[in-house]
């Protein structure tokens, strides 16, 4: 049941963001409870010229998980590329979750900037995890740019609305059966995560749903279970939905009916 991302095998199919927790201690407990092996870290705000966010990062490193730095909040190609380069140096990894935000209210990815930045970063040897809309053509361009993983949104970041466009997400899955697909952003409930896994997504990445829960540690555990449930259900080949009832016991010719 392992998942391979750029040659790295992981068992857990839940990726966790590290922002907005009540404290680093709560974050550490949530990471442990989620069983995740990959956490995303935003360095844009925390990194001053003197790398003054070290204390927080070392608390994350203590959790013993792999770090996927991100370019959260970047709005231009140049910003995103510079942030990625800084992240590579700081975290000693070629992995980068690429965010190029196009609009403030929806925090919607800018597909044009995203593809351009992805091209540059892939050329520079980065292993890019692009945060994208669910658009099929954008997906195609990102793969052409050299991305080997795609991360379409479920709905806007932090909205907790779940999977807004299941049809398009399924289309992506059908078109790219061999590309690891991760639903990133918009997940609010474990059932949203399970749903994505049930129709064959490879993993789920979320942050706010756990960080802003009243009990982040418990919510992390709930998500871990949901992701496993969804994955197992997918592998078990779920039944097809149908319009009419299909009784699980025969009704024709019942010899007698129960009366009281």
């Amino acid at each position: 049941m392992t998942l391979t991302l750029y040659g790295t095998e992981v068992t857990s199919r839940l990726l966790l963001g590290t922002a907005r927790y009540p404290s680093p201690a709560v974050l550490q407990r949530a990471i442990a409870a989620s069983g995740t092996e990959i956490v995303t870290v935003s360095l844009r705000r925390e990194s001053g010229p003197d790398r003054a966010g070290q204390a927080f990062w070392s608390l994350i490193r203590e959790a013993g998980v792999r770090v996927l730095p991100n370019t959260a909040g970047c709005k231009t190609v140049k910003e995103a590329v510079t942030t990625a380069q800084m992240a590579r140096e700081l975290f000693q990894t070629d992995w980068i979750k690429l965010e190029v935000i196009g609009e403030d209210d929806t925090l919607q990815p800018d597909p044009f900037g995203l593809v351009e930045a992805a091209k540059i970063l892939c050329t520079e040897g980065f292993q890019v995890f692009p945060y994208m809309t669910e658009d099929l053509i954008v997906a195609d361009r990102l793969l052409a740019a050299g991305c080997e993983v795609l991360m379409p949104w479920g709905s806007p970041i932090g909205s907790g609305r779940g999977l807004n466009n299941v049809y398009a997400l399924r289309t992506l899955r059908a078109h790219f059966p061999n590309v690891p697909l991760v639903v990133d952003a918009g997940i609010g409930l474990p059932s949203h995560a399970a749903a994505a896994m049930e129709f064959g997504y490879d993993a789920v990445l979320l942050n706010t749903a756990v960080a802003k829960a009243g009990e982040p540690e418990q919510m992390a555990r709930a998500f871990a279970q949901a992701v496993v449930a969804g994955r197992v259900a997918f592998l078990a080949d779920p039944m097809e939905a149908r319009d009419m009832a299909a009784p699980s016991t025969p009704v024709v010719g019942r010899p007698f009916s129960a009366r009281d």
Partner: peptide, 13 residues
């Protein structure tokens, strides 16, 4: 609220 030890630099953002 920023995870940083900086005590002397205010950003435009």
């Amino acid at each position: 609220m920023i995870e940083s030890d900086e005590r002397d630099r205010v950003t435009a953002r």
